[in-house]
Design a protein around this nucleic acid. Structure first.
Length: 922
RNA sequence: GCCGAUGUGGCGAAAUGGCAGACGCAGGGGACUUAAAAUCCCCUGACCGGAAACGGUCGUGCGGGUUCGAGUCCCGCCAUCGGCACCA
């Protein structure tokens, strides 16, 4: 991987980095404190903010800043260089905000339920717990070796019973709640009122169970034979499992569902209240897929049956020349005529055996059969044929459509293929062909006995016809969503068991019942074999003793999907040890920032956090699933009074992908995977962190370059040599070569700083260089422009290297700027520098962030580019405050410029003070 | 097909509508060295002219436009990447 022999070490990072990581661990430097928690007198946070041994409440603490990483699934392969990209960015910001006086919460944990550990268990019989623990240990070692300032006392693990107890508890909250359409929020199931006819307890139970936010459905689901489980819609891509790419089939099964569709509107609307990228919001909007239209009833000729369709174009009702039902539609059986029955049956069985992939491939070649039945178009009484076709989906809208071939692409293709009539009802603007025209135009041929739309523009026609339909009781305004309810059960072992048991009533019907909170956590049983049973039951069925309860009830055998644990982990970080609730309310109010405006504890007074997580950083792969599910749970918990903000993640940033050196996606098969461990051995954590940030903008996809690591590594070497005496360095290197590695750390004390580093007044030029750097680094950190912040520090160091005397005060401030990026070497030099000038070093991590002084940045003279007709011809130097006339005169004096003015008439002069001059001639 | 993002040197990239290519990598030259590594200094968008100093022309995916001035703003294309994809 790393070509050539190991280069000479630029500085002893191999001693410095473990030293400071151990120091931070021992001191608990980055621990965050909950309201009411006692602050140790000598903790740097307490010292910085002037609390000594007190226990400030929320109002007394500084404003919070919650910086969250998407926690990893600890895979057996260990960390790859993509993980630490986001982690480094958040760590830099966490350290920066701490220095600014905010009270930073920056935690890490493990999303540790999941399939790989279970599949390993199936192969080897090793309990997933063991695999998981080993993988977590690897990940933790790797992450810790990068020197991130996590508060490890808040570490969470979704597979820890003390954690998943509360995952199960949240499920119970969903189970015990319903969505009240009148209030548009979740309420306890006890507020549900029963309609007349719900007399018996069995009837009431059925009514109630059908309205819970967590409910059981018999609907067809995606079954993956290879994985031995069902998958959510979102986990199926092109008829294959997202994980592993195995084939999946449709299969009716009894499954737990979560009623996320009830929240579709709020999930959509509240996107406006949060700071996410537009593209990410758009992806969520598309996924929710809200569309407005109308439902219209069509009567079937010769029967009382009505077919309800959903359409976004009720204005084209006069152009409906046939209808299509989904093959699975309930009415197909009833309306099909004797002559057509055989063909319909054949078509239905063909489509049901089709995989989703086959259906997708048939997009261009539409199929379908006539049922023999006719329907009546309510606007003009026309009889139109009813077909079935698999281009109509049973799961969307009503599973039936009115087909308007003139103005719908799919209907047009179908009608063309089967020779069905095509009638124009919309006149396109500017003379375009009306066939297949699907955009807005003006209604034509749309006059019936009772209603006429002719001449109306599309939006108005929609309104007119919808009002008419409503008045006649034939239809109504309707909103539909692509979003489906969330399939929440999996036939797996390594997941949270449901806190649910099943009982059988007198008639033999099974019904479900929640376990009491006192039964939590429901632990998974011990098993010898983690495979599903031969008869297709989930693996938990193998634990026969566990399944049967003494009172005759039977446990739910499904487990929850991996998303469950990651839906709320950001809340558990707030109060990870709480045994009485998922999160204490004081902690929740403080860290999620919904508490009252504080008077300003600490020295960050006046600052104010935002509601929710201040900054959440992670990959785009979670743009829809995790982020939508977590928002949904958060809103339910909000409705139920468990949390106090409507949205969990106020600001979200997606880090870009890191590609291999060859510009391809990193993968084992391509052999282009870069292991952070190798980089760390060679260049150290500080160089690694710096390079990950120097590569380019955080959000962008960019290729790895180990040569690039060497560049920032050389920069850190220059920083080192800016401080350290060359002779002492040589001595140190020689001593290091003959010292036992275990004793080597003590040698650090032999290092002396250069005599050029001294107490003394900086020159104006030195101050200007420093303050330009402060300004640039500070502004770039605010804008997450880490790459340009680093380049500013490089420029500072390049200049500082030329100074024969290096004022300690200037170097000290520079170390503060460098510290968030390269904390280990900064700490070491910070300590040495203070020793060198005979001062006690305060905690670098909590030293107040420097502010730049604009007055120091002012130059006496400035260079002004001179353009003639917009082209650069010369650069003149003028006094900094020079007025337009002065600048213009200087420009005209330039011989180079004069050459371009000769024989020309000066028509116009544009002077932008301090910026440029443009002389327009002709 | 629809939605979104991105196109700048050999490479990663930088530029509130105002000196395009900062910073870094790679490359070239030099200093130090017996030599190499490391380090330090200089050069490095293309083309034309010039011995050189230097001067000129072109140049931010393509074509138009706005403007004294466009990588940046507007219109129309093209390409790459990501998401969705028979959602009525």
């Amino acid at each position: 991987m790393l070509a050539g022999p190991m280069a000479r070490r630029q500085y002893p990072f191999h001693l410095i980095e473990p030293k400071w990581q151990q120091h931070w661990d021992a001191e608990g430097t980055f621990k965050a404190f909950n309201p009411g928690e006692a602050l140790p007198a000598h903790h740097p946070f307490a010292v910085r903010h002037g609390y000594s041994g007190t226990a400030p409440d929320a109002a007394g603490l500084p404003p919070k800043f919650y910086i969250l990483d998407m926690f990893p699934y600890p895979s057996g392969a260990g960390l790859h260089v993509g993980h630490p990209e986001g982690y480094t960015a958040t760590d830099i910001l966490a350290r920066y905000r701490r220095a600014q006086g905010w009270h930073v919460l920056h935690p890490m944990g493990w999303d540790a339920f999941g399939l790989p550990a279970e599949q390993y268990a199936i192969r080897t019989g090793q309990h997933p717990r063991k695999t998981t623990e080993a993988n977590i240990a690897t990940f933790k070692r790797q992450i810790k070796s990068l020197g991130f300032s996590y508060d490890w006392s808040r570490e969470v693990d979704t597979t820890d019973p003390k954690y998943f107890r509360w995952t199960q508890w949240i499920f119970l909250q969903l189970y015990h709640a319903w969505f009240n359409p009148a209030t548009q929020r979740a309420e306890p199931i006890s507020t549900l009122s029963y309609p007349a006819g719900c007399e018996t307890e069995a009837q009431r139970r059925e009514y109630r169970d059908a309205r819970r936010l967590a409910y059981v459905s018999q609907a067809p689901v995606w079954w993956c034979e290879a994985l031995g489980t069902v998958l959510a819609n979102e986990e199926v891509i092109d008829g294959r499992s997202e994980v592993g790419g195995h084939p999946v089939v449709r299969k009716p099964m009894r499954q737990w569902m979560l009623r996320i569709t009830a929240y579709a509107d709020r999930l959509l609307a509240d996107l406006e209240t949060i700071q996410w990228s537009d593209s990410l919001k758009q992806m969520q909007r598309n996924w929710i897929g809200r569309s407005e239209g109308a439902e219209v009833d069509f009567e079937v000729v010769g029967s009382g049956d009505k077919i309800r369709v959903f359409t976004t174009r009720p204005d084209t009702l006069f152009g409906a020349t046939y209808m299509v039902l989904a093959p699975e539609h309930a009415l197909v059986e009833r309306i099909t005529t004797v002559e057509c029955r055989a063909a319909v049956e054949r078509y239905r069985s063909e489509t049901s055996s089709k995989s989703d992939r086959d259906r997708t491939e048939s997009v261009l070649d539409k199929t379908g059969v006539f049922t023999g039945a006719l329907a009546i178009n309510p606007v003009n009484g026309q009889h139109i044929p009813i077909w079935i076709a698999d281009y109509v989906l049973a799961s969307y809208g009503t599973g039936a459509i009115m087909a308007v071939p003139a103005h719908d692409t799919r209907d047009y293709e179908f009608a063309t293929k089967f020779g069905l009539p095509i009638v124009q009802v919309v006149e396109p603007p500017n003379g375009r062909d009306w066939r297949g025209f699907v955009d807005d135009g003006v209604a034509v041929n749309s006059a019936g006995p009772e209603v006429c739309l002719d001449g109306l523009p599309t939006p108005e026609a929609k309104r007119r016809i919808t009002d008419w339909l409503a008045a006649k009781g034939l239809g109504q305004r309707m909103v539909n969503y692509k979003l489906r309810d969330w399939l929440f059960s999996r036939q797996r072992y390594w997941g949270e068991p449901f806190p649910i048991v099943w009982r059988t009533d007198a008639t033999g019907e099974p019904w479900h019942e929640a376990l009491p909170e006192s039964a939590l956590p429901v632990m998974p049983p011990a098993l010898d074999d983690y495979k599903p049973t031969p008869d297709g039951q989930p693996p938990l069925a193998r634990a026969t003793d566990w399944v049967r309860l003494p009172d005759g009830a039977v446990r739910e055998l499904n487990t929850m999907p991996q998303w469950a644990g990651s839906c709320w982990y950001y809340l558990r970080y707030l109060d990870p040890g709480n045994g009485a609730g998922m999160v204490g309310s004081d902690a929740e109010r403080y860290w999620m920032g919904s508490g009252v405006a504080r008077s300003g504890g600490g020295d960050a007074g006046g600052k104010r956090g935002v509601p929710g997580v201040d900054l959440y950083v992670g990959g785009t792969e979670h743009a829809v699933l995790h982020l939508l599910y977590a928002r949904f749970w958060h809103k339910v918990l909000f409705d139920l009074g468990q949390v106090t903000t409507p949205e969990p993640f106020f600001r979200l940033v997606n880090q870009g992908l890191i590609l291999g050196e060859d510009g391809q996606k990193m993968s084992k098969s391509r052999g282009n995977v870069v292991n952070p461990d190798d980089i760390l051995v060679e260049y150290g954590a500080d160089a690694f962190r710096l390079y990950e940030m120097f590569m380019g903008p955080l959000q962008e996809t960019k290729p790895w370059s180990t040569k690039g690591v060497e560049g920032v590594y050389r920069f850190l070497g220059r920083v080192w040599r800016l401080f350290v005496d060359e002779a002492a360095e040589t001595e140190f290197e020689q001593a290091l070569a003959v010292t036992e590695p275990s004793q080597a750390r003590g040698l650090l004390d032999r290092l002396r700083l250069s005599a050029s580093v001294a107490v003394g007044d900086p020159t104006p030029a030195q101050l200007r260089a420093l303050h330009a750097c402060i300004r640039k680094v500070t502004e770039d950190l605010e804008g997450l422009r880490f790459n340009t912040a680093i380049s500013a520090m490089m420029m500072f160091v390049n200049e500082a290297m030329t100074w024969s005397t290096r004022p300690a005060a200037v170097l000290k401030t520079f170390l503060q700027l460098l510290a968030p990026f390269a904390p280990h070497v900064s700490e070491e030099l910070w300590q040495r520098l203070h020793g060198h000038i005979g001062q006690a070093p305060g905690s670098l991590g909590y030293a107040a962030w420097p502010e730049f002084d604009p007055a120091l940045l002012v130059e006496e003279t400035v260079e002004i580019p001179v353009q003639v007709n917009g082209k650069l011809r010369d650069v003149v130097r003028v006094p900094a405050g020079a007025g337009p006339a002065e600048v213009e005169a200087a420009a005209k004096e330039s011989p180079k410029v004069q050459a371009f003015l000769a024989d020309k008439t000066l028509r116009k002069v544009i002077v932008v003070p301090g910026k440029m001059v443009n002389l327009v001639v002709g």
